[in-house]
Amino acid sequence: MDRPSLMRLFSACDVNKSGRIEFGDFTAVCRELNVPESEIRTLFDRFDADEDGFIDYNEFSSRFQEVSQTLDVSTFAALTCSSPSRAGAGPWEDFVGRIDVEFQLSER
Rank of each mutant, 00 (worst) to 15 (best):
V29F: 03
S68K: 02
R8K: 15
G19M: 09
V73L: 15
V35E: 03
Q104C: 04
L43S: 05
N34H: 11
R98Y: 01
V73M: 14
S106G: 06
S62Q: 07
F95L: 08
D50V: 07
P91I: 06
Q69F: 01
E22F: 04
L33W: 03
K17F: 07
F95P: 09
F54Y: 15
F95Q: 02
F10I: 09
V96I: 15
T27E: 14
R8G: 05
I99E: 01
P84G: 00
D2M: 09
F103G: 00
F23G: 07
F103R: 04
R20E: 06
F23S: 09
E102L: 15
F10N: 05
V15C: 10
S83L: 11
P4S: 05
E59A: 06
S18I: 02
R31Q: 12
E39C: 08
D48I: 10
L43D: 07
I40E: 06
L71W: 14
W92E: 12
F26W: 02
E59V: 09
A77S: 09
E66A: 15
I99Y: 02
N34F: 11
S68T: 14
E39I: 00
E39L: 13
F26G: 07
T27C: 13
R98D: 08
F95T: 10
W92K: 12
F95Y: 15
G97L: 10
T27K: 15
A77L: 13
V29Q: 04
D50A: 07
Y57A: 11
G88W: 06
A28N: 04
E102C: 13
A49L: 11
F103C: 08
M1E: 07
D14T: 03
Q104R: 14
T27Q: 13
S5I: 05
G97I: 11
R46N: 08
V29H: 02
T75R: 14
I21N: 09
V101Y: 03
D100H: 04
V67H: 03
G19W: 05
M1L: 11
L33S: 07
E107D: 05
L33K: 04
K17S: 13
F76R: 06
E59Q: 12
N16H: 10
R63P: 00
I99W: 00
S5H: 10
D50N: 15
V96R: 08
D14F: 03
D48E: 00
G88D: 06
D72K: 10
D94S: 11
T70N: 10
P84Y: 00
N58D: 13
T42W: 01
K17P: 02
D94R: 12
Q69C: 08
S38N: 08
R63T: 08
L71N: 00
S74N: 14
D72C: 02
V73A: 13
M7T: 10
R3T: 09
D2I: 09
K17R: 13
F64P: 01
G97D: 05
A12K: 10
L6G: 02
E66Q: 12
N16R: 08
R8W: 05
E51Q: 14
G90N: 05
C81Y: 00
S68M: 15
R108D: 03
S83N: 11
M7K: 14
A77R: 12
